[in-house]
Design a protein around this nucleic acid. Structure first.
Lengths: 211, 211
DNA sequence: TCTAACCTACCTACTGGTAGGTAGATTGTC
DNA sequence: GACAATCTACCTACCAGTAGGTAGGTTAGA
């Protein structure tokens, strides 16, 4: 595809190939899924030969593990960058990740894409997917609980249960955006946040009556 | 459903091969996805030759259309069977559909599986997926609104927005069940219902006071 | 006899992966 | 500094297997 713009220069200190492979594979995973992209697609995109990819990743499974590990590293970095913000701002920023995904060629959540292919994946890749999902769920649960304590969120039961609901809804939302367009994505996330908003303090007069 | 494409020959005793193909393809779609199952898988499962499938479905795309139309027909029938029930019971029954999916070899929502492969599918299949999703969303919105009116559900904003959230969350939940097991599925649906429950009516005496 | 519903035998395109080779940079030894 | 050995990062050519699909023959029932 863009072989001319990125000529392979063997030996010429151009060892960002591995990183470019991971980056391209990340994009292809999010748009087409793990099983649906091939070494040939990657090779065409990078302007190298298919067999050369095996030098960096002996098997496609190895590539899958590296790709998911890279997603996890990115998320860890994202978390670090948002440590200072209050829970509500953090949650907005988190949901914006998915909004950006949807707008970027209809990319889906990598965890959702891997889940779709789950029964055709080796255990090594599955385990990386679990680690990535777990990182998101732990962060969500902590943010939700902190927000509830601060009075900016309201939800029933345990924070980890609510975290699972939000995680699942976000995954479903980006998939829905493929069918219905980006606007659908925004609608869903807005409703998700509206459900999380604490109830208005009712009318003061009624509170007096009730107490 | 698709009477036009059904070889409805008056004289010849119609075989059930076509129906078995659709049924097997439905199961494979839900477990592995549309792109991940092949005519060979279907042929092995039915004990016929791969080429024979082309007699019933000239192309895999035709099969995809028929499979999604069958899902829609099943759902229409399900809706008909639950017409009499109250909104809360209907919603419970609806979510149980997904619980059964997850327990049945980790089947996912067909709409979610198709969404994952969306960019590799022809427009004919995409359109059928939209029709199926739309049927679910319309039913959900109607049930939610009826439940809100009856006081068994509470949620902010329009019912169709809440329907989208529940639909997405259910899709995400069955995918999550692949990673974490059936129990996770139950937890998520329970939380989803808890969020939908109207706020406790405080002490009954207070209701009298407020009215 | 007609034809629905299969079959055999084959096609092209593509998959992940392997074998073996090579240009050029790096490193260790004298 | 000279130079052989080794390493990096690619290459060509190929493998067996599988994908969806096609052409044309066979068979069983109305």
């Amino acid at each position: 595809m863009n072989a001319s713009s990125t000529p392979s220069t063997p030996g010429a200190r151009a060892s960002d190939t591995r990183a470019r492979l991971i980056g391209t594979a990340q994009a292809l995973l999010q748009t087409h899924g793990f099983a649906a992209f091939s070494y040939q697609h990657l090779a065409d995109e990078l302007g190298i030969r298919k067999a050369s990819i095996h030098y960096h990743f002996a098997s496609k499974d190895d590539l899958g593990v590296a790709v998911l590990a890279a997603f996890r590293a990115s998320f860890d970095e994202w978390v670090r960058l948002h440590l200072g913000q209050d829970p509500h701002a953090r949650m907005l920023a988190y949901l914006r990740i998915y909004t950006r995904f949807a707008r970027d060629h209809g990319k889906a959540c990598p965890v959702a894409m891997v889940s779709s292919d789950f029964f055709d994946l080796p255990e090594t890749v599955r385990e990386q997917a679990r680690l990535l999902a777990q990182a998101h769920l732990l962060w969500l649960a902590a943010t939700l609980e902190e927000g509830r304590q601060a009075g900016v969120f309201a939800f029933p039961g345990e924070a980890r249960r609510q975290a699972e609901v939000i995680g699942c809804a976000a995954q479903g939302a980006v998939l829905s955006a493929r069918m219905w367009g980006d606007q659908r994505m925004d609608d869903i996330l807005r409703q998700l946040l509206a459900q999380l908003a604490p109830p208005p303090p009712a009318r003061p007069v009624n509170i007096q009556i009730m107490d």
